[in-house]
Amino acid sequence: MLRDVSFHIDTSSFQFITGPSGAGKTSLLRLLFLSLRPTRGSVRIFNRDAATLPRSAIPGLRRRIGIVFQDFRLLDHLTTYENVALPLRVAGVDDSAYRRDVIELLEWVGLGEKMWVFPQVLSGGEKQRAAIARALITKPEILLADEPTGNVDPPLARRLLRLFVELNKLGTSVVIATHDLALMDQYDARRLVLNAGHVEIYD
């Protein structure tokens, strides 16, 4: 339950959403991702009101948003490569058109060796990186990440954070929900602290 939460995510901004477990971080991300509709109040995404948005407009908006789930949400019957390429595939792009980009991105996140295996054989950290790669492959305008470093060791967490920072420099707004204080200390950014459904903003 979130109430009196009011904020705006600027283009090319970088922010952490933090707070204790159950404070509503995931709910807030789901609101931003249009998978929850607000019972009251107004959520505007890319200048469209989420409450009155027709169902048919949601896929188009979601293609402009990259999301990394806490539980990865990889499809078990698809290879790592296919999982990462999924957003392009559902958008109707031909395999030959994105093949190089997907392979390059997978190499970069260190999954070059695991490209053609299924998620069952990936470790938590590898799944995390595959999930992140899937969110990035469409070069989204805004990236929402729910505990993106929750399953990786500190060096990899730092590397992933650098990836997010770099992406942000290229113009993508980044929203990272995390309760990892060490991670937030590594990069000076706006913090939205959720507590019992309220938000405090530290710019």
């Binding site: 390059e104 991105l105 492959i137 469409t138 070069k139 990836l163 992406l167």
Partner: peptide, 20 residues
């Protein structure tokens, strides 16, 4: 996206350089 000026390759190249 991003005004269409960035290809994935450019983005990745820059990320790779940064990482190195």
């Amino acid at each position: 996206m991003h005004g269409g000026s960035f290809s994935t390759r450019v983005m990745l190249k820059s990320m790779t350089e940064h990482a190195v």
